[in-house]
Design a protein around this nucleic acid. Structure first.
Length: 452
RNA sequence: GUGGCUAUGGUGAAAUGGUUAUCACAGAGGUUUGUGGUACCUCUAGUACGGGUUCAAUUCCCGUUAGCCACCCCA
């Protein structure tokens, strides 16, 4: 929304200008966060590999209609949260706000119905929504997505839920699953009209927001937090009672599987989700570690079945699918709360020190030899004096320092310093890599043995 | 999109309507131009941006921007 036109006075003299900064809701992820991101990626890779999911990398931009048709034109996401623009060629496009519609598009576009069903796909991508930022909510954010397309078997619902649960657990985050069934669109429609009828009968007790909800999206009344709603909600008709046998059975099966897999869940008849494409099972993953000072309970992820989406986008009728998405920034908040953030400090086994120009020149190559030999070796070539280099070696917890000075370069030797004992020995520069590599290996074996 | 709170070096804090804005950590250099974990010294670096009130604003007021919180919604 454009504000009032700013009467921007010409800058007087050479005043300091405002420092450049990221756009609202966007941020840099700096090196000291990388250990956590790498851990998340490792866990994701392991998990999806075990379950036979293939990675898909999706484009950041799509035709706007992918989301308008896929997510639903009347959803908040599409209505007011998309970054949409027209490019130089006059094509209307959108920075992806979510992945499921994209995956559905890809499934159809690449004829994946000819593969063994279900087609199991995962992605770890960035998404974009124009929302007001808050902790764990950015305009550009990461999601891990899991989608199983081409089957309506309830075991897949359970499996996807189990996977999201395990993903968090592997990262040290305990969660509980909130689960509900939305039934088919027809059932939901019938239910919504009943629900509307019920709340219209109590319209006098509704607040302003809830009256709006009643108009626009009555299902949302079910998760309203306004005063007095608890009571009203308790008396409201519940969707589960409107499910037909097939839907009921599907839901029961999912719950049975979850019981068997020992995934903790809560049946939440008030859980509704804001995207049009959901059918039957919907769920949400909530951290049991309170996040933030006031202990708010952020949803770490959610998902559900979307049996209608593929046909809606032009794919074959009766293509069932289930998927989930996890917000990685939120999971990271939960990891912090749970104290399971990995240590980001770089450590090495060996540290290479050089003194003087000749040593520095030779050192580049020697360092590279260590690296090629698979030795975890650190360096600070930009430092000139030995003291500073040993200080860094110490900070990096190197057990061995290699020291190359002017004298050693002339003699064709090099110093090996045991960082713990402080003892030093001078060896032939040609042999230093193999000597040190062996010593490090022996140390590791010894350390391992003493542990066992 | 609505409302509230906040904004001091890279980080975390302190202070004040009136000279050089304090401290710790981090960073750079040094205490024998070749030896680390301590210690000491020196240096770097800041009142978010714009306007107003005032003799004087980092301090008070307004706007902008951003962050956080509660909504909305969602991951």
């Amino acid at each position: 929304m454009p504000g009032k036109p700013k009467a921007e006075a010409a800058p007087k003299a050479a005043k300091k200008s405002k420092t450049l900064e990221t756009l609202r809701g966007f941020r840099d992820i700096l090196p000291d966060e990388q250990a956590a991101w790498e851990k998340i990626e490792d866990v994701a890779r392991n998990l999806t590999h075990s379950y036979g999911f293939g990675r898909i990398r999706l484009p950041a931009l799509e035709a706007t209609s992918v989301f308008e048709r896929g997510v639903g034109k009347d959803t908040d996401i599409v209505e007011k949260e998309m970054f949409t623009f027209v490019d130089q060629g006059g094509v209307k496009m959108t920075l992806r706000p979510e992945g499921t519609a994209q995956v559905a598009r890809a499934y159809i576009e690449h004829g994946m119905l000819n593969q063994q069903q279900p087609v199991k796909l995962w992605y770890m991508e960035q998404f974009f929504r124009h929302e007001r930022p808050q902790a764990g909510r950015y305009r550009q954010f990461w999601q891990l997505g899991l989608e199983a397309v081409g089957s309506d078997d309830p075991v897949l619902d359970a499996q996807i839920i189990l996977m999201t649960y395990s993903f968090c657990k592997d990262l040290g985050v305990d969660t509980i699953v909130n689960i509900n069934s939305l039934g088919t669109p027809a059932i939901r429609k019938a239910y919504i009209s009943e629900l509307t009828k019920y709340f219209k009968g109590h319209a006098k007790k509704l607040g302003e927001t809830d009256l709006k909800r009643l108009q626009r999206n009555p299902l949302r009344l079910l998760d309203s937090k306004e005063d007095g709603m608890e009571e009203l909600k308790a008396g409201a008709p519940q969707l589960i009672e409107y499910l037909d046998d097939e839907n009921k059975q599907h839901f029961m099966k999912v719950l049975e599987y979850l019981d068997e897999a020992e995934v903790p869940y809560t049946l939440n008849p008030f859980l509704v989700r804001g995207l049009d494409y959901y059918t039957k099972t919907v769920f949400e993953l909530v951290s049991t570690n309170p996040i933030g000072e006031n202990g708010s309970q952020l949803a770490l992820g959610g998902g559900g079945r979307y049996d209608g989406l593929i046909p809606l986008l032009g794919g074959r009728e009766a293509t069932g699918a289930i998927g989930a998405a996890l917000g990685l920034e939120r999971i990271m908040l939960a990891m912090k709360a749970a104290g399971s953030m990995p240590d980001n400090k770089r450590t090495v086994d060996v540290f290479f020190c050089q003194l003087g120009e000749a040593a520095r020149r030779k050192g580049l190559k020697i360092f590279e030899k260590f690296r090629q030999a698979g030795v975890d070796v650190g360096e600070a070539f930009a430092k000139g004096n030995l003291k500073a280099q040993l200080e860094i070696a110490d900070k990096m917890k190197a057990s061995v320092a290699i020291i190359l000075g002017q004298k050693e370069v002339l003699d064709g030797t090099i110093i090996i310093r045991d960082m713990e004992a402080g003892a030093q020995e001078i060896v032939d520069v040609e042999k230093v890599v193999s000597i040190v590599a062996k010593r490090i290996q022996d140390e590791k074996i010894a350390a391992k043995n003493s542990k066992e």
